[in-house]
Amino acid sequence: MQLQPEEHIFQLLLRFIEDDLSPEESKQVLQWINASEENTTYFEELKQTYQNAEEIEDFDKIDVDRQWEVFSQNNLNQSQQTKSSISFYIKIAAAIVVLLGIGFLLPTQFNNEVTLIAGPDQKTEFLLPDNSKIWLNKGSELTYSKSDFNQTERQVTLKGEAFFEVKKDVLKPFVVHTNQTKTKVLGTSFNLKSDSSTGVTELMLLTGSVSFSSDSDSVILVPGEKAKFVKGKKIQKTTSYNLNIPAWKSGVLMFDQTPLAQVLTDLETFYDKKITIQNKQLEKCKLTSTFDNQSLNSVLEELVLLFNFTIAEPSPEVIQLQDGSCLH
């Protein structure tokens, strides 16, 4: 998903959907839409999203007046906007980001901060102004300053998990702030995950090198290394990392003589389902296989075939692998 159009285009597109433009403005919008395939696709997605938002039950019960009061208190020095206009954008933003749960760039005509959001059930790709690519895992957010980004540094703040492919620029380091840590790179690819509830931040480096630091500690990582930070403790660096940490982005799970205990941990994370083995001794069995964008049922069928398991579901949230034997 490419970075969205500038604010004035965004506003015109929304007003075009609402049939609230002059003939001259409508002509301008149509020219923009037809200027490229990307523009056409973006408009169609925005139009569909808006139409879906209109169909959401009780959507009009959003307290727009209260939202306006909060906005006014926090933005006294900003340029004035009409109440009807603000209400309109609050409605669209709330629909797109909260109720529909899709990835989106939150409009920022009220301040200097850009917020990229992935919905609760969807990973989303974005293109940053420096042409760096990021993939946000479901429920994650990334923010940056519209005026400061790509000036002397490329600073962003992450909540949740993201995979980064950073465009190389030796003069402007790319810096990610999250959970009292700072990741600094010039150009590389890495997976970064933070959990604000536990205070744990994990970084896995795929290419290039990064500096990973907290308030009191700092390490340099090279490809094949992973760092873990827990608030109040020193950064832990390891060289034996899990190949499946970025699987949420690629959809590919890879195992190479991996104990079934680790296999099930990775499957649980990927499919968001509790999976257990009744005979704990079988957790030491090894698996070598690759699951490429397969359903959980497909993966379980392969485990049944390889290890003679039978499948039981003691509860809707739990799958249990019973019986079975190791490969010979």
Rank of each mutant, 00 (worst) to 15 (best):
I277A: 02
N244A: 04
Q78M: 13
V318R: 13
Q278V: 07
N150D: 14
R66Q: 09
L205V: 10
L206D: 09
H8L: 11
E141K: 15
I235C: 05
F291Q: 01
V175N: 02
Y50G: 02
E317W: 04
W248L: 02
Q262W: 00
F164V: 04
D60M: 05
G251M: 04
I134T: 02
Q257C: 06
E24W: 03
L186K: 10
F149H: 08
Q31A: 14
V318Y: 11
V200S: 04
E268W: 10
L171E: 13
K172A: 01
T258Y: 01
A247I: 06
T178L: 09
L192T: 02
T258S: 01
S79I: 15
L100W: 02
N191V: 01
K234Y: 04
K193H: 04
N293A: 07
Q28A: 10
E302V: 09
E161W: 01
F10P: 00
E113P: 00
F59A: 11
L221Y: 05
W32K: 10
D121L: 13
Q109Y: 15
G324F: 06
L221M: 07
F110V: 12
K193Q: 15
F291M: 07
I319W: 03
V219Y: 05
F164T: 01
N179A: 09
D63R: 09
D292I: 03
S196Y: 12
P316D: 07
T239Y: 03
P23K: 05
Q322T: 13
G224L: 10
T207P: 00
V98K: 15
I245F: 07
T82R: 13
H177E: 11
V29M: 07
F59H: 08
E7I: 14
F10S: 09
E283I: 00
Y241T: 08
W32R: 11
S84W: 05
T198S: 14
L260I: 00
L243F: 06
V97I: 15
L128T: 02
E141P: 00
E113D: 11
T290N: 08
H8K: 15
N52S: 12
Q81D: 14
S132D: 04
L21H: 08
E225L: 04
D20H: 01
T258R: 05
A312T: 12
S295T: 13
T143G: 03
Q73Y: 12
M254A: 08
D148L: 12
Q109R: 14
H8R: 13
N39E: 07
T269W: 11
N52Y: 12
T198W: 03
S132T: 10
K226R: 14
S240I: 14
S72G: 02
L158W: 01
S36L: 03
G324M: 00
W135D: 05
Q257N: 15
Q28S: 12
M204P: 00
S325K: 15
K273E: 11
D266M: 05
K27Y: 12
K274P: 00
T41A: 13
Y42F: 14
F309Y: 04
A53H: 02
V64R: 08
H177F: 10
L206S: 10
Q262L: 08
N297C: 02
N279L: 09
S295Q: 11
T238A: 11
S140G: 03
